[in-house]
Amino acid sequence: MTYKLILNGKTLKGETTTEAVDAATAEKIFKQYANDNGVDGEWTYDDATKTFTVTE
């Protein structure tokens, strides 16, 4: 399945997608991606749209 991440960081904003077997796997990938890019904030997930959002 395709999952989407919306980044609302102070210095980085944008979107990315990943292919993952489930939401938990996608979350791990996205949290590593956000960490690698210096984004740390409040996480939400919308199962209907398979979208994670992180807001600093």
Rank of each mutant, 00 (worst) to 15 (best):
T44F: 08
A24G: 08
D46H: 10
M1H: 15
D46T: 05
N37V: 11
T51L: 05
T16F: 10
A23S: 11
M1Y: 12
N35D: 10
A48G: 13
G9D: 04
F30D: 00
E42V: 14
D36S: 13
N8K: 15
A48M: 15
V39F: 08
Y3D: 00
K50N: 13
I29M: 09
E15K: 05
D47K: 10
T17I: 07
E19G: 11
Y33Q: 03
G14Y: 15
T51Y: 03
N37G: 05
L12S: 08
T49V: 09
V39R: 02
M1W: 14
K28E: 14
A23W: 07
G14H: 14
E27I: 13
E19K: 12
D22W: 03
G38D: 10
A34F: 03
F30Q: 00
K50Q: 07
E27V: 07
T55D: 10
T55A: 09
A34W: 03
K31T: 07
Y45E: 01
Q32H: 09
T2K: 08
K4A: 06
T49L: 09
T17N: 06
T55N: 11
N8P: 02
E19T: 07
A34V: 12
T53V: 08
G9V: 13
G14N: 09
A26L: 01
A48V: 09
V54F: 05
E27R: 06
F52N: 00
N37W: 14
E27Q: 13
T25A: 13
N35W: 12
T16R: 13
W43R: 00
K10E: 11
M1I: 12
V39Y: 06
G38Y: 08
E27T: 04
T2A: 07
T11R: 05
I6D: 03
F30H: 01
T16E: 14
A20I: 02
D22P: 01
W43M: 06
K50H: 13
K10N: 15
D40R: 15
A20Y: 03
G41H: 02
L12P: 03
I6L: 10
Y45A: 01
L5K: 00
Y3E: 00
K31V: 10
K10I: 08
D47L: 12
V39I: 10
N35Y: 09
E19S: 09
D22S: 08
V39E: 03
A23P: 09
K10D: 10
Y45G: 00
A20W: 02
A24I: 14
K31S: 05
K50G: 08
T49D: 05
T49F: 09
T53Q: 09
G14K: 14
G41M: 03
D22E: 04
L5W: 02
W43A: 01
L7V: 15
Y33H: 05
L7H: 04
N8H: 09
E56M: 05
A23Y: 06
G38R: 07
T51A: 05
V54T: 03
N37K: 13
A26G: 02
T25Q: 10
L7M: 08
K4H: 14
E42K: 07
T17M: 11
E27D: 08
T18W: 08
N35T: 15
T2H: 07
N8L: 13
E19Y: 13
Y45R: 02
D40K: 05
D47N: 06
K13G: 07
T55Q: 11
F30G: 00
L5N: 00
G38K: 10
E19R: 06
Q32M: 15
F30N: 00
E19N: 15
D36E: 14
E27F: 11
Q32R: 07
E19D: 11
A48T: 10
N35M: 13
N8G: 04
K4I: 13
A24D: 11
K10T: 15
A34I: 08
M1K: 13
F52G: 00
K10Y: 14
A26N: 00
A24P: 07
A26Q: 01
A34Y: 03
K50M: 10
K50L: 07
K13I: 11
K28H: 10
A48H: 09
V54M: 06
T53D: 03
T55W: 11
G14T: 15
L12K: 04
D40I: 07
Y3S: 00
F52S: 00
Y3I: 01
G38V: 04
Y45L: 02
L7R: 02
T11D: 12
E27L: 14
G41S: 02
T49H: 14
D36T: 12
T2R: 09
D46S: 06
T25V: 11
I29V: 14
D36A: 10
K10M: 12
K13N: 13
Q32D: 09
V21Y: 12
I6M: 06
E42L: 15
T49K: 11
T16N: 08
D46P: 00
I29D: 05
E27W: 15
D46G: 02
T53Y: 08
T17E: 06
N35A: 13
K31W: 08
T11M: 09
N35R: 11
F30Y: 02
E56P: 04
E42A: 14
A23Q: 11
E15Q: 06
L7A: 04
T55R: 06
E56S: 05
F30K: 00
K28S: 13
V39T: 04
A24F: 11
A20N: 04
F30P: 00
K4R: 09
A26K: 00
F30R: 00
N8M: 11
E56R: 03
Y33W: 08
T17V: 11
T51E: 05
V39A: 05
L7I: 05
L5V: 04
T11N: 14
V39Q: 03
V21A: 13
T49G: 05
Y45I: 02
T16L: 15
K28Y: 14
Q32L: 12
T44H: 06
